[in-house]
Simulated scan of single mutants.
Amino acid sequence: MTTHTAHAPKVEHGQPAAQYAALPWRILEGGVVEVMLVTSRETKRWVVPKGWPMEDHEPWDAAAREALEEAGVEGEVEAWPLGSYRYDKRLKRGNTRPCEVQLFALRVERERKKWPEKSQRTRQWFSVEAAADAVHEPDLAALIRAFGARD
């Protein structure tokens, strides 16, 4: 599998950079919905798989690719975002960059045993409420809760 490298796009001063993320999910017996989070590489906090736009990829396809590379999951991704949230991305030089992330639901159909970032991250299934509590961004937590409440 080829890993596509995407670089932060140039943005106008004061404007957040665009990123695309996946919210991997599944339904357990009894109808219980779970979502998967992964740890960030540097701080090991719980996040959703996300990354920069990719040339020749629609936003939802870029989100699905990030889910495969960061969490080792594949499935059916929705083409319409659940919403968006903002956070400050920590860059290699120690400074931060504001980002606005569009979040796409991805129903997991396959969990790989090996994936590109397996040695750099931990993946874990959470209840909707536990996932919302585990992430640091309030707007992401709200999106996860709203996803869990939808029919």
Rank of each mutant, 00 (worst) to 15 (best):
T5D: 13
A6C: 02
A8P: 04
A8H: 07
E12L: 13
A21M: 07
L23D: 00
W25P: 02
G31W: 11
V32L: 04
V35Y: 03
V38S: 12
K44I: 05
V48N: 03
G51Y: 03
G51S: 02
W52C: 02
P53I: 11
P53D: 11
M54V: 14
E55W: 09
P59E: 06
A64V: 12
R65E: 14
R65F: 15
A67V: 15
E74L: 14
G75R: 09
V77W: 01
W80R: 14
W80K: 15
P81H: 09
P81D: 05
L82P: 00
S84R: 11
Y85G: 01
R90Y: 03
G94L: 10
N95C: 07
R97F: 01
P98C: 07
E100R: 15
V101E: 07
L103N: 05
K114S: 09
K114P: 01
W115C: 01
P116Y: 04
S119D: 05
Q120N: 06
R121S: 06
R121K: 13
T122F: 12
R123C: 04
Q124D: 01
F126K: 10
S127M: 03
E129A: 11
E129T: 11
V135R: 11
E137N: 11
E137Q: 15
P138E: 10
A146K: 14
F147R: 05
F147T: 04
R150V: 10
D151N: 15
D151Q: 14
